[in-house]
Nucleic acid binder design. Sequence first.
DNA 1: ACCTGAACACCGTTCAAGT
DNA 2: ACCTGAACACCGTTCAAGT
Lengths: 252, 252
Amino acid sequence: MTPPRLLDENALQEREQTIITVAITLIQRLGIENLTMDKVVAQVPFSKGTVYKHFIGKEDLLLAISNHAIKVLSDLFSRAYLFKGCSRERMLLLNFSYLIYAILYPELFQSVICAKSQSVIGKASEQRLNENDELGVELLTAIHGIVNDGLADDSLTLPEYMNVQQLSFANWSIAYGAIALLSGEVESCSGRTDLIVERELFNHSNLLFDGMGWKPLTKDKKHCTELTIALQSLFPQELALMKEKGRQLNFS
Amino acid sequence: MTPPRLLDENALQEREQTIITVAITLIQRLGIENLTMDKVVAQVPFSKGTVYKHFIGKEDLLLAISNHAIKVLSDLFSRAYLFKGCSRERMLLLNFSYLIYAILYPELFQSVICAKSQSVIGKASEQRLNENDELGVELLTAIHGIVNDGLADDSLTLPEYMNVQQLSFANWSIAYGAIALLSGEVESCSGRTDLIVERELFNHSNLLFDGMGWKPLTKDKKHCTELTIALQSLFPQELALMKEKGRQLNFS
DNA sequence: ACCTGAACACCGTTCAAGT
DNA sequence: ACCTGAACACCGTTCAAGT
């Protein structure tokens, strides 16, 4: 029934993965704005025409990288979701899994943001866009799930005029704000800032949760040492990798 | 003492402004990623070489646009700062002035974000970077000032482990998160989202302020109609412009 | 059927030649 | 002193020619 295929599906997928991996490495080394189809082709054991058989253009490749990035983040999110603890702590862990991802893979974090721009979406293939939608939903369900657990055990109550989706988005949004504004920061270039991303993410999360009345409130319980221990148990490899890069999460 | 100048300073400044204005119009029409020095030169009554006398490169032009954008935002911020009202309401107004700016001038909002990237900063002129720093400080002092007013009249108390700078940043960060994630949204393309940026900005702000214990708390006072009236008095022209574009702020 | 890379249009930047 | 625009290196994309 299927049309004749002279090239097997597996080899094709492998080739595609090679291109994506090479492109990510180039972004790491040169920055996303210096990613070039020429450079990708030069690093890959096949020709320009072949690369363009996999990706209809540069933007399509970018969205493929973004999709790969979301899968990586999704794995971290699901670990936070599955953690045995109270719902508020799990949401805090989820926010920190987002931070770990942004610090460990800045090129992936940036690719996802970049791929959200109209100019990328407008030039990517239908199929890649669909995959992007599905992966986005996957991310949100982890957040959604934790909120629902909080509602179920009464540690959290819906504020007036807000539904589960809005509450979930509020969490995503404040984490995104702090991480996007601070995680790329280079050592306070002009002495300009004493803001440390992990500390501010911790503060913003707790202020928001307190504002929601998500128990236990900060005044009733310090979540700080608990967080350090939980992070170590959930993300041992990731934290070790960060240590190698000379970057440790520091709450003080 | 000053070196001889055959071209007067005024004419030079005017020429520079012309280039910036043309570039902004091009970004509006074509998107920032399609801005081209060739296109700018084509729309301007002088040659490529002359444009490059004003801007050492494309990135320098981009930072000049970003600086212009910050000045526009700064004006809106200072109006919110000067509003006669309680500190919490003024901060809410400041957040909404940020939203109005992002909706009314999406190309400026995007330019500022874009100009924060390492690749732009790395290629801009020293002078333009200094101006950027100064303008950034100007923005933060408005926020800072409102927080200080809140502390002064005891409607706000510093949370443990947070200083004024951190509290100010928390506000900036949550506003940025909501606006960056939602303000560019096109009419929920796949029925995917019921999130309306003005409503969520309102919610997130109130949750954060409540978490800080910034009085009057939401439970003691609805800030919604008050906000609509204050916005109308502070930003009449801007709201009229939005209406022309068919975009009205809608809390419901 | 599949792959290749020369060729084309367009981009950012420079600088010798003009006035 | 100031301006111009041809020229260069590099980019994304295509497609005739090969196997």
